[in-house]
């Protein structure tokens, strides 16, 4: 056992990368849930984004256009969910699960001819001077741009929810759609937009896997990342700031666990892998016990809205 072999700076830097796909997907789902909608189809939207992004990137040779395509692909799939749940009033849980099924099937059909191809590469940013600052440089300033895009989106969502009027409306719709409706807000319009945003972010997260982390198209490339994203939203108790911490924690557990294995620290893998979920449940309990449920889940989460009901 020689813990000195683990370089904490590199550990932090690599867990930032490991967390990026789930961070992207989770921030999108956070907005969706703050609008009062539970979309369990994150995995399906992620993998659709992964293949659409890959196809676009290989066709155009530009990973950036690929990421745009991925966002569009994820959003397009989420539009199905939006139409069903918002206009046809279908149950959100069942529709979300069906969306995952559709996404997985669609992506492997689309990807049939893309197995074994390498995607155009995404260079890491290396800014002279600041990237070379000891400790902070490697942690903060030597990543590929999508790491910063992910953090930027989180920052943007935080500011949007906290300071903008539209953010206020979105939260109102999520907390109590009947009251929001009575105040004249367009509940369904807000929710559809939130769902599309969630789809786009999930698509970006998926494309980060197929274009940066793996980077190749293989069926099942997301391997359950979408479900982890759902957990992170809950862990974060629907706050963008905590979401970043949650994503790093969930992403970091795997990285840490593998690092410990390499220096022969005998840690039962199973306990480490279930720990984040147990912590999430504990968080939920503390939140709902501590403040009488007020700071827990958005009030209208998962309930469908119909103006006449």
């Amino acid at each position: 056992m020689d813990l000195s072999a683990i370089n904490p700076i590199l550990l932090v830097a690599s867990l930032m990368v490991a967390a990026t796909p789930i961070l992207l997907a989770a921030i999108g789902e956070l907005v969706v849930e703050r609008a009062g909608v539970l979309n369990l189809g994150v995995e399906g939207m992620m993998i659709t984004g992964a293949i659409v992004g890959f196809i676009v990137a290989t066709a155009t040779g530009s990973p950036w256009i690929g990421f745009l395509g991925a966002a569009a692909g994820g959003a397009a799939l989420s539009l199905l969910f939006a139409v069903l749940t918002q206009f046809l009033l279908s149950n959100q849980v069942a529709t979300g699960l069906a969306l995952t099924l559709v996404g997985l099937g669609l992506s492997s059909l689309l990807g049939q001819n893309y197995v074994g191809i390498r995607a155009p590469s995404v260079p890491s940013i290396h800014i002279p001077v600041i990237s070379d600052i000891p400790v902070i440089g490697p942690i903060l300033f030597q990543h590929d741009p999508m790491v910063y895009v992910g953090l930027g989106i989180c920052l943007g969502v935080w500011a949007f929810l906290k300071y903008s009027r539209a953010g206020l409306v979105l939260r109102a719709v999520g907390e109590n759609h009947d009251a929001a409706h009575a105040l004249g807000y367009k509940v369904i319009r807000v929710r559809v937009l939130a769902i599309l945003f969630g789809g786009a972010c999930a698509g970006l997260g998926g494309a980060y896997l197929s274009l940066v982390r793996v980077p190749q198209w293989t069926e099942g490339v997301t391997a359950g990342a979408g479900w982890i994203a759902l957990a992170i939203v809950v862990f974060a108790s629907w706050r963008p700031g905590r979401l970043v911490i949650g994503a790093y924690l969930f992403g970091g557990v795997t990285v840490l666990q593998l690092n410990l294995q390499l220096v022969n620290v005998p840690i039962p893998v199973e306990i480490l892998s279930m720990a984040p979920y147990l912590v999430t449940i504990l968080t939920l309990v503390l939140l709902s016990a501590g403040r009488g449920g007020a700071m827990g889940a958005p009030g209208s989460l998962g309930k469908h809205f119909h103006a006449s009901s």
Binding site: N7, L11, R213, T218, G220, A223, N259, Q261, L262, V269
Partner: peptide
């Protein structure tokens, strides 16, 4: 030689993490 058990035959993200952790440890 160092060994990392991924407990999966196929999980790109986890495999990437394992490789990275190794590389970071020299």
């Amino acid at each position: 030689m160092v060994v990392a058990w991924a407990y999966t035959w196929f999980d790109p993200a986890k495999e990437a993490d394992a490789a990275k952790a190794m590389i970071e440890q020299g």
